[in-house]
């Protein structure tokens, strides 16, 4: 069988993948530029910020709280050996602001909101809703995809800010009242070493990039899903897996560029 050879298989995979990536890129550009073309519904955008952001808030707060507390414990046991527990506040804040905040927010967002986006758009496709829209001379990229993309870009940094703050508070609760680190030192060391531009803002830039990538992958997977129940299901799985890997890969690149 010809298909069993490696080279034709790679060739086939490339022939399949490259046009798909081109289509995904065109999909992204024409959706992102919808507000510029005035083909954009502000109300739909707010609706998506609600669906993607507000409804993910509780999950983020709980996750952030535990993440911060674990960081407090682990950081303490690592630092106490060197008598450097005064650096605990710095450790917690920098870990959260630079890496854990944006990355965990994005991963949780991909699991909670991204999968829902793919399933929603996929089932709109399966039930011909997108076709119906197209036939009513309404561009689904502008009406359906653009508000979701912009909603993600907007909601994820806000979620990340709240994640950072709640995480630091969780870390504080473990460090100061439970483990007995001096509270003044905790905050003073943190303030001395955290830079607003270098750490906080760059972390939020990361979060916005992740928000874009996760919603892009989620909406694209929904949009290009096979229009059956099975197709939507596998697109949802693919969306979460691809979005999570993309977040981790992109994190490496952004960390190298920003910090």
């Amino acid at each position: 069988m010809k298909e069993d050879f490696l080279v034709p298989r790679i060739g086939h995979a490339v022939r399949e993948t490259v046009p798909r990536m081109g289509m995904a890129a065109r999909f992204l550009v024409s959706s992102l530029t919808a507000p510029v073309r005035r083909d954009f519904s502000f109300r739909q955008w707010l609706r998506q910020i609600f669906g993607l952001g507000v409804l993910s808030l509780a999950l983020m707060v709980v996750a952030a709280f535990f993440t911060g507390m674990v960081l407090g414990f682990q950081g303490y046991y690592a630092l106490v050996r060197f008598g450097a527990t005064s650096a605990l506040g710095t450790l917690i804040a920098l870990s959260l602001l630079r890496e854990l905040g944006p990355v965990l927010t994005a991963l949780l967002f991909a699991g909670r909101a991204g999968s829902a986006l793919t399933a929603e758009i996929g089932s709109m496709k399966a039930t011909e809703q997108l076709d119906a829209m197209e036939m009513m001379a309404v561009n689904p990229l502008a009406w359906v995809v653009a508000p979701r993309l912009w909603g993600g870009i907007f909601a994820v940094p806000i979620l990340c800010t709240i994640f950072d703050l709640v995480g630091i508070f969780g870390g504080y609760l473990v460090s100061v009242p439970i483990l007995g680190v001096d509270g003044g030192t905790f905050w003073a060391q943190m303030q001395a070493n955290v830079s607003f531009h270098g750490d906080i803002l760059n972390g939020l830039i990361k979060a916005a990039c992740f928000g874009l990538v996760v919603t892009w992958i989620a909406t694209w997977q929904g949009f290009s899903a096979h229009p059956t129940a099975e197709g939507v299901g596998s697109a949802t799985t693919r969306s979460v897996v691809m979005a999570s890997l993309a977040v981790l890969g992109l994190d490496f690149i952004l960390t190298a560029l920003l910090f």
Binding site: M124, T127, E128, Q129, D131, A132, E134, M135, M136, A137, N139
Partner: peptide, 19 residues
């Protein structure tokens, strides 16, 4: 094409109502 489609209506097999 969109202007032309405003003068067309289409009924889909699965009704395709917005849920």
């Amino acid at each position: 094409l969109y202007r032309l489609r405003q003068r067309m209506g289409m009924l889909f097999q699965h009704s395709a109502l917005f849920t």
